[in-house]
């Protein structure tokens, strides 16, 4: 049975970065308020911090790698037009960064880098309907409804290297 790919683009806002209570990773929650679509993407601490810093408008004394990326684009007058989460295969998400210097170009990226760059350049973030269909399901909704109260509410969480276990937010069996 072949399923026709739905490549419609759904715009997403970054709701926040939260900790996965069971692993030493971060989860970036993307959401479209109008359609109530939610896309959680797991990533490392460093990648999560790069997104959180942009969300909190933190300006570190020296440019971070993503600040440098945005600054290089600005210096060379390259416009980041949009970033798109294009695919998910074996639990790995893929993204494309659309650039323009007169000519439109597309660069393959991890979603974490694409989102971190989008937030710094103010460009829109999209996901294809296809990816949402593949990643979605009731499990994600149920899981998120439990974890959501913590989104964005943890000061300095991303600089803490010791994983904190929060009891009561989720039990292991729900994720499996």
């Amino acid at each position: 049975m072949s399923v026709e790919q739905n490549t419609d683009l759904i715009p997403l806002a970054v709701l926040g970065v939260t900790e996965d209570p069971n692993t030493d990773t971060r989860i970036v929650i993307l959401r479209n308020d109008a359609t109530a679509d939610v896309l959680p993407i797991w990533m490392g601490q460093t990648e999560g911090a790069a997104i959180r810093h942009a969300l909190e408008d933190l300006v570190p004394p020296r440019p971070t790698s993503h600040d440098l990326m945005a600054s290089l684009a600005a210096h060379l007058e390259i416009t980041v037009t949009r970033v798109v989460v294009t695919d998910v295969r074996h639990n790995t998400y893929f993204a494309a960064i659309h650039l323009s210097n007169g000519v439109e170009r597309t660069v393959d990226a991890r979603p974490s880098d694409a989102i971190a760059l989008a937030l710094r350049t103010g460009c829109p973030i999209y996901v294809t309907r296809d990816v949402l269909n593949k990643s979605g399901g009731d499990n994600v909704e149920t899981w998120l409804s439990r974890i959501a109260p913590d989104v964005g509410g943890r000061p300095n969480g991303d600089t803490d290297t010791t994983p904190r276990r929060r009891t009561g937010t989720m039990n292991r069996t729900e994720r499996a």
Partner: peptide, 9 residues
Amino acid sequence: LLKSILDNV
């Protein structure tokens, strides 16, 4: 990615 962006342009 930084390198790839620069290569692309």
